[in-house]
Nucleic acid binder design. Structure first.
Lengths: 196, 196
DNA sequence: CTCGAAATCAATCAACTGATTGATTGATGA
DNA sequence: TCATCAATCAATCAGTTGATTGATTTCGAG
């Protein structure tokens, strides 16, 4: 008995499959090695079919970016910050990054690949810059508040401090996996360097 | 009057020209967009001539890497650290990075491109990892010494601290140029977070 | 059941790209 | 002066890659 095989899918479903396959390939091989043929093969469709659903390679890349942006937007909404002290907010923010490293390292890698692509593609650059600025600003606001409320050092520079924190977190992306073991020590070090 | 035109160059001279052109192109367009034809065109020679002097594209990339490594090795030798306190050594190290950002931003960019290439080329990865580890270790040693001598905090974790410093410095690479203006504030913030 | 639209595919194009071949040119030591 | 060899180039190859064309298959509304 042959199983029931659906031969045609809706554009909406196909586009999601295509985005997922492209995401995986970008993470595996880097965005500059992304090939439309490989994406099609992974989905199990012909190249022409891929182009039918996603007209150009550039459109494919933006499909992936937009999904990434949506994911992080939802992620932020999911964790309420109400009633937390600046120190707790700082710790929560760092903890969320750690959890992302554990549960979705592929998306952090994808982020990095997209930043890279941003160097030569202005539209990609704009979208990624917006995401980075938003993340950085969260830390700036937390440090400002903590300084005002007297929980952090009086001579703390919130902008420079935020730069340090985000820099230290992103740095894990470029280090071998086994160095993840020092994450908590780095998190402690960040906290120690800000509190009074 | 026609100028004296030398038509043939020694392999040694040509290889240097080729390495310089390749370096510039990698910095301009990213290493994944490096094309042997463009390198040849920039030097003003035929593709076959380029392959005569540098047999493969991979050899070309390693030619550039080795020149980069030599440059940083010389750079380190050039600045004596004798008789400096840990705090002074930390400040010197940060200052040298700043000067590199001003005088040779292209080499920092090249470094980044090579790290990127390292994701898919194990030989490149090995060479770049060695450079990064060496740089990181300098900060670890400085922080250790400063802690022992009582100039830095007693609860300072040298490894985590070094990760923070290098992360904060490298982070400038991924930010818009105008944010270079906060460099000194970040440097101050680093120092403030380590001293007693 | 039927027909038109949506989805799919085989075949192919045109441009790009790393590398090679074989012939030519120029510098240099004897 | 000339023979040799390093250096150079025009032409070409073979494989890759994003995209298109035109024909075929499948689905679902009527």
């Amino acid at each position: 008995m042959m199983e029931q095989q659906i031969k045609h899918f809706s554009t909406d479903e196909r586009r999601k499959e295509i985005a997922a396959a492209a995401t995986a390939l970008i993470v595996e091989k880097g965005i500059e090695a992304l090939r439309t043929r490989e994406v099609a093969a992974r989905v199990g469709i012909n190249i022409a079919t891929l182009h039918y659903h996603v007209s150009t390679k550039n459109a494919l890349i933006h499909l992936v970016i937009d999904a990434l942006r949506d994911f992080f937007a939802e992620q932020y909404q999911a964790h309420p910050r109400d009633g937390l002290s600046p120190l707790q907010m700082l710790q929560l923010e760092i903890q969320e990054y750690k959890e992302m490293m554990v549960s979705r390292p592929d998306l952090l890698q994808l982020m990095d690949e997209m930043f890279n692509r941003g160097r030569v593609d202005v539209e990609v650059e704009a979208k990624m810059r917006e995401m980075k600025i938003r993340w950085n600003r969260q830390f700036v606001e937390i440090l400002k508040k903590g300084k005002q409320e007297g929980q952090f050092r009086e001579n703390l520079d919130p902008i420079a401090g935020a730069h340090m924190v985000t820099g230290a977190l992103v740095a894990f992306q470029y280090k071998p996996k086994h160095l993840f073991s020092i994450f908590d020590a780095v998190a402690d070090e960040i906290v120690k360097s800000f509190v009074k």
